[in-house]
Amino acid sequence: MRSEQEAQLRRRVSQLLEDGTLKVVLGYASGFKGTRPLFVQDTRHVDRLVWNEACEANLTGYLLREPLKEMLDAGNRIGLVVKGCDMRAVNVLIQEGQVDRSKIYLIGMVCEGVRDGSDFSLKCRNCRVQIPEGCDETIGTHTELERLEGNPLEDILKVKAMDLAERWAYWKQELSRCIKCYACRQACPMCYCQECITEKSRPQWIEKAPTLSGNIAYHFIRAIHLAGRCVSCGECSRACPMDIPVDMLTRFVAATIEEEFGYIAGEDVNAKPFLGTYRQDDPEDFIR
């Protein structure tokens, strides 16, 4: 199915660029790590677009960064190749008023799973969005789809099963490797603050230095700031050059919110942001 999808994707992108519907399409090309993002503006380059198991990255974050942000601000319409899971990120950005839905054209790819090296990505386990919803068009057939078994929270459960001392030792070891290159933040579609708390110097809220305490402060604040917003795409960990499973922190918060409140970020584009709503009959006093 994938090669047919790839051919159709190229045909469609070519048409959409040619008839002026879109200014640019962001998709995947072959690259050193399997694939890498590709900006197609010229129909002569559509053959560089690929669709395969290595299309693991969530490209949604590019919508809020140069050069797409400037193009959107200038009123252009932009195409984005998305998987069902990436749609959750798009939805959160729409909910949060960051992206004007009418300015983006979503080309959804029916997905048989993507790989992180030789294994299927953790995010593909028990995937319920192999057929993307809410796109402008969908490429791929809905038959022959096989749901990948397993628990996407497998890694978190393993760490959760450790006793407190063990867990502390685990995170100490992982986070002490952090060099604060901020690849996780820059890769994250939800990390779009104009000025990240790590950059504030008056006052300087957290240690700038990549010491263990400075790293813990950064990653924990990031996890809290992503509460109800993290879509569990794993882009932060995919980007980390030091192999730190930083997404476990944000996915743990996401899993807790799902468990406690039944809220899944980005699942429904019409839902209100998790931390942006309240109920009159909330049982907790502090909210009223």
């Binding site: 974050g61 960064r65 050069p67 290159c181 690849a183 933040r185 890769a187 980007a239």
Partner: peptide, 16 residues
């Protein structure tokens, strides 16, 4: 602008 299109402004390349 063309050659830096994919860059997301992280510091992985520098730091390593």
């Amino acid at each position: 602008e063309k050659v830096s299109e994919n860059c997301v402004s992280c510091g992985a390349c520098y730091y390593l």
